[in-house]
Design a protein around this nucleic acid. Structure first.
Lengths: 198, 198
DNA sequence: GTCTATAATCGGATAGAC
DNA sequence: GTCTATCCGATTATAGAC
């Protein structure tokens, strides 16, 4: 019985931690790190404000949690795409996933990209390095697909593709126009199709 | 004599306003809007803190000033490039200007792009719209060059070029690697060269 | 026009009751 | 584990002397 109670408590605690992590990712994406208060995240996660510090010792830890939530989402996506037999189809699936998020991107930009940009304006903490790691995760996966496609410079192509995504997200956001995601997404799909396997 | 004294005073006042505007642009680029205090800008401009409010009634007005400073810099650059007779050379000159800023971009990102991204995370003020205007200024100029080159879809090409710039700046910044600016810059130059005039 | 002192507010973090 | 009350520092903005 104590075991049951304990595991239930642990699960509830784990659930709260997870809720806080997911809420941190969402709210920080919408408001940015600096404009997001602990209270904002607590409210979104439906956790009492003063209780947050039991799970995360500081605001920076919550931001780190948001970052790892983004990494988790990315791994979920690439995991799904890895089921596809053809690397070309995997890359096209990635682009389609980006385009499907057009409205969110037009309103708040790429979650990881905007977060990285904001964190790079601090010196302390080292959260900026953490953000770079998540972006590298994406770059490495894309590079791997280009290599499997037999492309000569997979690293350069990955930089171009991910850079195009970051750029189109920023422009869609700055101009508040989701159609930019459609337009550039279509161009990227055509580009991938045009690549000749070596 | 009163005229002299008055004009001197006006000039000094104008000079302070300009110093504050330039300082706002620089400091906000490095630290971001939210982490920049009025005191930071005052110090950078060598103006007493309490005196700032004589020139700008609020922090938002200082941010707006930073934005128009970026617009001014952009007009200076395009004005110089307009001297070149060939639109293809003008576009290549723009790309070279971007690459020449690689170290700044790798440390703090594109001044206008990162500012736009940060401002888009607020609802109040309408400074986000102002940031969009500056980006549109650049897009329109680039579009004009592509049109003069006889390209069929100048608007789409402008979106691609400016998007590529924003993307490579963000990646260079997130990965702290200025060589990304060289690499992608070279690719863009080759792309412009490959375009066949219609 | 210039500058100081200070008001007013806000948000991160902690202490400690339950 | 949960939650309240509160401290403390920082920052925008203003009032008013010079």
């Amino acid at each position: 019985m104590t075991d049951l109670k304990t595991s239930a408590r642990v699960q509830a605690a784990g659930a709260k931690r997870q809720r806080l992590m997911a809420a941190a990712a969402e709210v920080v994406h919408r408001q940015g790190v600096e404009r997001t208060t602990i209270a904002d995240i607590a409210r979104a996660a439906d956790v009492p404000v003063g209780n947050v510090y039991y799970y995360y010792k500081s605001k920076d830890e919550l931001v780190a949690a948001a970052l790892s939530e983004h990494a988790r989402q990315l791994e979920l996506l690439t995991g799904r795409l890895n089921q596809l037999p053809d690397p070309r189809e995997r890359l096209k699936g990635l682009i389609e996933a980006w385009v499907s998020q057009r409205d969110l991107a037009a309103r708040y930009g790429c979650p990881t990209g905007t977060l990285a940009a904001e964190l790079d304006k601090r010196d302390e903490g080292g959260l900026d390095v953490e953000a770079g790691r998540v972006i590298r995760l994406l770059l490495k996966w894309v590079e791997h697909q280009f290599r499997e496609l037999g492309q000569p410079e997979p690293g350069g192509l990955a930089l171009t593709l991910v850079g195009a995504y970051q750029g189109m997200s920023l422009l869609a956001n700055a101009l508040r126009d989701p159609r930019i995601m459609d337009r550039e997404g279509a161009r990227l799909l055509a580009w991938i199709d045009s690549l000749v396997a070596a």
